[in-house]
Design a binder for these strands. Structure first.
Length: 429
DNA sequence: CTGGATGATTTAAA
DNA sequence: TTTAAATCATCCAG
């Protein structure tokens, strides 16, 4: 910009002094000072303006320059300004106020709520933030649960921000370009700053409509992601066999107190490749279902008990304790550990009695404990089978210890119509 | 297609 | 908050 653009209102009527260095062809007819010559001059200029679109760019540039430098130009410009001054009112009045688009506001709010357009870090998605807040300290499994979701959300956020930046940059570039163009044009035609402002606002509106599209598609992406995430969470997928085995192993080896501690849950979760919450769910389900129908789980219980017994025997022969998922002990007191052991062994006893289970694998030291347990069995043998089943996993001592199924009050359990006993009957009878 | 198995969610209680 | 219990929703073998 070597030359100040002559905007309409800042225009102060440049003198009519001739410009030096006019091209030769522009000079013709300017020699005389009479009216005819001037008229022809104007006609010539107008003619050139009219045909300007037919010219090549270089040619046009040259012509433009020539016109700009023409001595008649300021006068013509003034005339144009006057004409425009009279007609521009209608344009100016058409400048409407732009009300904030409610849809845009809704989109903005949603993006903010989803953490897409909000602060970069510290919270991620609203859902994740809420989950993290709800879970307090145990954010590890939650982050694992939501990591996929959050990763995708972050991706969306990144795309959104890059696109937004791109649009803004493009908008600024375009605005600058248009403004320069208008300034440039304001040399040859009257353009008010208001008009430039208006043009800029039109450009901004156009770009913001593009931005709204971006926001809309981002919102859609978030919604899709969200629904997919929720679906995935709602969808049930069975754990793999190994995970189930590990869980069952723990459950049956801690049958007297199948309440894994937080650390135990974490370890189990890690081993099984599931979350701590899932471990909790599993144990919750397992406890209630086991208790509801012990007979149904008899075989499973025997199997795992035998396996645990074997493991224990092997481990003890190597001089170390329990091989099961390295929880020190679920129930703090020393007595309960023994109890739990005895309870588990009791399962083996049952299988030996009822089904001639291969007890040969049970180590000798274990066998001796089995013998002592037989007493317990015989003592409780007078009850109905259903009760026997209950007694199996909750010997008296455990109840005293706050065992996992709080004293099933024999009287209530004795109701003979119950299922467990009947199922159990195939093995014991 | 069906019924049982099973993981997840909800509700209520401690 | 954890847990028991009920319930939901899906999976899956037959």
């Amino acid at each position: 910009m070597d030359e100040q653009p002559r905007l309409m209102h800042s225009h102060t009527g440049v003198g009519m002094a001739g410009h030096p260095g006019l091209p030769q062809h522009m000079q013709e007819g300017t020699g005389g000072t009479d009216g005819d010559g001037r008229k022809q001059d104007i006609g010539d200029i107008l003619q050139q303006i009219m045909t300007i679109t037919d010219q090549s760019l270089d040619e046009a540039q040259a012509r433009k320059h020539a016109l700009n430098c023409h001595r008649m130009k300021p006068a013509l410009f003034n005339v144009l300004c006057e004409i425009k001054e009279k007609t521009v009112l209608s344009i100016r009045s058409a400048q409407e106020e732009e009300p904030p688009d409610p849809q845009l506001m809704r989109l903005d709010n949603m993006l903010l709520a989803e953490g897409v357009s909000g602060p970069e870090k510290g919270g991620g998605s609203a859902a994740a933030a809420a989950a993290a807040a709800a879970s307090g300290g145990a954010g590890v499994d939650n982050s694992a649960e939501h990591s996929d979701y959050r990763a995708k959300l972050t991706q969306i956020r990144q795309i959104y921000h890059t696109e937004l930046e791109k649009y803004e940059q493009a908008c600024n570039e375009f605005t600058t370009h248009v403004m320069n163009l208008l300034r440039e044009q304001s040399r040859t035609r009257p353009i008010s700053p208001k008009e430039i402002e208006r043009m800029v606002s039109i450009i901004h509106r156009k770009f913001s409509s593009i931005q709204m599209q971006l926001k809309q598609s981002t919102c859609e992406a978030v919604m899709i992601l969200r629904s997919r995430f929720l679906d995935a969470r709602r969808k049930r997928r069975n754990f793999n066999k190994q995970a189930t085995e590990i869980l069952n192993e723990y459950f049956y080896s801690h049958l007297s107190n199948p309440y894994p501690s937080e650390e135990a849950k974490e370890e189990l979760a890690k081993k099984c490749g599931i979350t701590v919450a899932q471990v909790s769910n599993w144990f919750g389900n397992k406890r209630i279902r086991y208790k509801k129908n012990i007979g149904k789980f008899q075989e499973e219980a025997n199997m795992y008990a035998a396996r645990t017994a074997v493991n224990a025997a092997n481990a003890s022969s190597h001089g170390s304790q329990a091989n099961s998922p390295s929880t020190p002990n679920s129930a703090g007191s020393a007595g309960s550990f023994n109890m739990s052991n005895s309870g588990d062994l009791f399962m083996s006893v049952q299988s030996l009695n009822g089904d001639s289970y291969q007890g040969a694998q049970v180590g000798a030291n274990v066998q001796s404990q089995v013998d002592t347990l037989r007493h317990v069995i015989s003592q409780t043998g007078g009850y109905s089978e259903g009760l026997t089943a209950n007694q199996m996993y909750s010997p008296q001592g455990i109840n005293a210890n706050g065992g996992w199924q709080d004293a099933p009050t024999p009287s209530s359990v004795t109701s003979p119509t119950e299922g467990p006993g009947s199922v159990h009957s195939d093995t014991s009878n």
